[in-house]
Computed example of a mutant assay.
Amino acid sequence: MLSSYLKKQKGYALVVILMMFLILAVLSATLLSLWYFDSVMAQKKICKLQAYYIARSAADVMGTHLLKNNDDIPEIIGLKSDENTFFGEDTNFTVSVSKQGSKILIQGRAAVEGVTDTANLILRENINYITKPDESLEVYYTYTREGWVKEP
């Protein structure tokens, strides 16, 4: 009875089509916004990963230099590099070196498209003694790589 009544009404099909179009438009807008949000988050994650590896590379280069050149350590402690920019204006990094007790903290910090991350490398101080021919002791320090830490 209801179907026969609806069939007699003019414009019934238009109302059904408009309702279906409205539902389809709402679903499309929802999916589009979810896709956009997901792509923005993926891009930020990529930038954070790139920033971490740039920071880690910067700290690693400084750590390798200090391990090979122990004499440079007193001059470098407490210094922070200038901001180095590469791959355009959106990517830069800095390296700083500080001493914390018997450990040296090398901190690399990088930013890619406004997303920053840091990598911290710890060098451990080793105290070595050499007995000279006159039986006096000579103390010298060497450093070994202790490892990467999340927070200093």
Results as ranks from 00 to 15, higher is better:
Ser4Glu: 15
Ser4Met: 13
Leu6Thr: 13
Lys7Gly: 15
Lys8Leu: 11
Gln9Asn: 11
Gln9Trp: 15
Gln9Gly: 05
Lys10Phe: 13
Gly11Leu: 10
Tyr12Lys: 07
Leu14Thr: 07
Val15His: 02
Val16Tyr: 02
Ile17Trp: 06
Ile17Arg: 05
Met19Ala: 14
Met20Phe: 15
Leu22Cys: 12
Leu22Ile: 14
Ile23Ser: 13
Ile23Thr: 14
Leu24Asp: 13
Leu24Gly: 14
Leu24Asn: 12
Leu24Arg: 02
Ala25Asp: 08
Ala29Asp: 10
Leu31Lys: 00
Leu32Ile: 07
Leu34Pro: 01
Leu34Asn: 08
Leu34Thr: 02
Phe37Ser: 09
Val40Ala: 03
Met41Asn: 06
Met41Phe: 06
Ala42Tyr: 01
Ala42Glu: 01
Gln43Arg: 08
Cys47Ile: 00
Cys47Arg: 04
Lys48Asp: 01
Lys48His: 09
Lys48Val: 06
Lys48Met: 02
Leu49Asn: 08
Leu49Lys: 06
Ala51Tyr: 01
Tyr53Ser: 02
Arg56Phe: 12
Ala59Phe: 10
Met62Pro: 14
Met62Ser: 11
Thr64Asn: 12
Thr64Lys: 13
His65Val: 15
Leu66Thr: 14
Lys68Thr: 01
Lys68Phe: 07
Asn69Leu: 07
Asp71Leu: 01
Asp71Ser: 05
Asp71Tyr: 02
Glu75Met: 02
Ile77Gln: 02
Gly78Asp: 15
Gly78Ala: 03
Leu79Trp: 04
Lys80Val: 13
Ser81Ile: 05
Asp82Arg: 07
Asn84Arg: 07
Thr85Trp: 11
Thr85Cys: 12
Phe86Val: 09
Phe87Ile: 03
Glu89His: 12
Glu89Met: 04
Glu89Asn: 15
Thr91Met: 12
Thr91Gly: 05
Asn92Ala: 11
Asn92Phe: 09
Asn92Glu: 07
Asn92Met: 13
Phe93His: 04
Phe93Tyr: 11
Val95Arg: 00
Val97Gly: 02
Val97Leu: 02
Val97Trp: 07
Ser98Cys: 04
Ser98Met: 10
Lys99Arg: 04
Gln100Phe: 01
Ser102Ala: 06
Lys103Ile: 04
Lys103Trp: 12
Ile104Thr: 06
Leu105Asp: 09
Leu105Lys: 11
Leu105Gln: 11
Gln107Gly: 06
Gly108Phe: 07
Arg109Cys: 06
Arg109Met: 09
Glu113Lys: 05
Asp117Pro: 00
Leu121Val: 00
Ile122Glu: 00
Leu123Cys: 00
Asn126Thr: 00
Tyr129Gln: 08
Ile130His: 05
Lys132Leu: 15
Lys132Asn: 14
Glu135Asn: 09
Ser136Pro: 11
Ser136Val: 08
Ser136Asp: 13
Glu138Trp: 08
Glu138Ser: 07
Val139Thr: 06
Tyr140Cys: 07
Tyr140Ser: 07
Tyr143Ile: 03
Tyr143Ala: 03
Arg145Tyr: 13
Glu146Met: 03
Gly147Asn: 04
Val149Gln: 02
Lys150His: 05
Lys150Cys: 01
